[in-house]
Write a protein that binds this DNA or RNA. Structure first.
Lengths: 155, 155
DNA sequence: TGCGTTTGACTTTCTTTGACCTTTATATTA
DNA sequence: TAATATAAAGGTCAAAGAAAGTCAAACGCA
């Protein structure tokens, strides 16, 4: 558990707080967490990307910096962007990021999000060359199982 | 008596205690019991499957883990029956019928049901011979589109 | 001998690191 | 002062590392 990327992500989210943007120094941050500077870029591109509702800008050279910004906070705009983006394929991790952001934006409830993540999980989709009916059964089975597990957890 | 799989099962059950889920590291566990890592998968698939009231999830890569969850469908004969039935393929109409019953029985809210129906619709699943990522994108796009349409109507 | 168990080789996914590149600011020099 | 060099950022990309997954062969006991 606890890979450093998740920790850095959490740190940045906390530092952001309710603000809409944040300036950081890549080197300082890398130094603070004792990682390669390019690890910061990894965190930014996987966690602070468009799908998750962020954008970044930067400047090189002396006194350089990176700015992390929340994108256009209007939900409908964001959603439309995401929907467009989905004309291309998407992996599970990114899908989860999108769904997570949708919950933060209150576009989805967390129980709806759980259902969707389940529907999209590698476990549910499995072998991509199965027939439609089979695939559907697999998905529904997975969803029902997980939903049950979830309600049990809440009790 | 006392093959290593049974011992690992017992260990996990004990560690679980009264909790409904448990995170473990496959490698650590395999190491602790001096077995091949894949033995853990064997234990999970034979002992912590849905017939026994469990399901699992996992993440690979640095900081990866396996989550074992209780599903405990035992107290719902109805749900259990459905889940068993889903070992066979199922067409869209039947799926909708099942989901409808689940709503009646208050296993699902109607908004959850809508999402699931969307995920399972012929439109979302489409051509069954596409690659997993493509299929997933299709499903999520459909879900988001529909969710969007619904909220728009409500506003 | 057959079925459940155990092992290991190979695969996939996600993270971390490092070597090399580009841009910008500042200091130096003709 | 204009041109040039140097240092100080940040960017990119591919390889290595760190998990977990799959599958089939070998094993072993009732």
């Amino acid at each position: 558990m606890s890979n450093i990327s998740d920790i850095i992500e959490e740190f940045l989210i906390n530092t952001l707080g309710d603000d809409n943007y944040l300036d950081i120094s890549r080197n300082d941050l890398a130094n603070y967490f004792n990682v390669a500077p390019s690890q910061i870029n990894y965190v930014l591109s996987t966690r602070f990307n468009y799908e998750r509702g962020f954008m970044t800008e930067s400047k090189r050279g002396g006194g350089g910096y990176i700015t992390i910004m929340r994108t256009d906070t209007k939900n409908s705009t964001w959603l439309n962007g995401i929907i467009d983006r989905l004309n291309e394929d998407i992996d599970y991790r990114t899908a989860c990021y999108i769904i997570g952001s949708a919950v933060e934006r209150k576009v989805l409830t967390s129980s709806e999000a759980e259902i969707i993540k389940t529907a999209l999980s590698p476990n549910a989709l499995g072998n991509p060359f199965k027939l439609e009916n089979h695939l559907r059964a697999q998905i529904l089975q997975r969803i029902l199982l997980k939903h049950n597990a979830k309600t049990k957890k809440k009790e």
